[in-house]
Amino acid sequence: MTLPAAIGIDAGSTTIKLVAIDRKGEVILQVIEKTEPLVAPQAERLLKSVLEETGASGSVPVVATGYGRKLIRSATLHKTEIACHAAGIYEEFQQAGTLVDIGGQDTKVIRLDSDGRVINFAMNDKCAAGTGRFLENLANRLNIPIEKLGPEALGASKAQPISSTCTVFAESEVISLLAEGIPLQEILLGLHQALISRLSAMVQALQPAPPIFLSGGGAKNPALAQLLENSLGHPIRISARPQFVGAYGAALIGLKTDLPSKTALPL
């Protein structure tokens, strides 16, 4: 296996992602796991296993991002999710546009210029209604695997409007709708629409420039992509590895920045 030239770790609220790249920026290895309550030891363990697997000897720059970034002590650099997602998506598409990243409890909208610089950004505050957690919660409640939510919703001929955008209250609303005999698919479509109406307002407020890039766990849901495209009226381009955009961007930053040649981990 090629030796990694840089490693990026994205310690998100739901999942932790790790990407190792070579000198050309090609991905050698990518790992994803559910985030454990103690992020730091988990990140160290992942890092160690990746270094061992790739045979890297030590002085690889490691860039950490995500909410847990500051906890990853062995990282040579800490960068925000904004900078890393911008770097990751720009490398993939090489053009100006607007990135919508639907994460676990955090949705980001980032506007990029033609050089990949961040012009403006917005993130959801204080409420997880426009994020993946909204659907994840309901999938759990309804006993449907999360990856089936989107396709199921797209199978509906009409949507059952969900009035509550609150993740917690939507749950009880769904339960009573099911009790009234409303078909599940219609409810699911309604739920997706509720999320998109919230998300779309956030994107619109940033005066998005097309095209819209989509990343994060939410990008794997076909219903979200389609509804967002309809709502914004701009073409959507989904990242090839939607959940790794942040970690990939972090690794790219590690490759491009002159970092002190500090050993990432004592091996």
């Binding site: 925000t80 610089r117 961040v118 204080k126």
Partner: peptide, 15 residues
């Protein structure tokens, strides 16, 4: 929201 605000401010400085 402590964490959210930290991230936003750091991203602003990066900008």
């Amino acid at each position: 929201a402590e964490q959210q605000i930290r991230t936003r401010l750091e991203a602003f400085v990066e900008m």
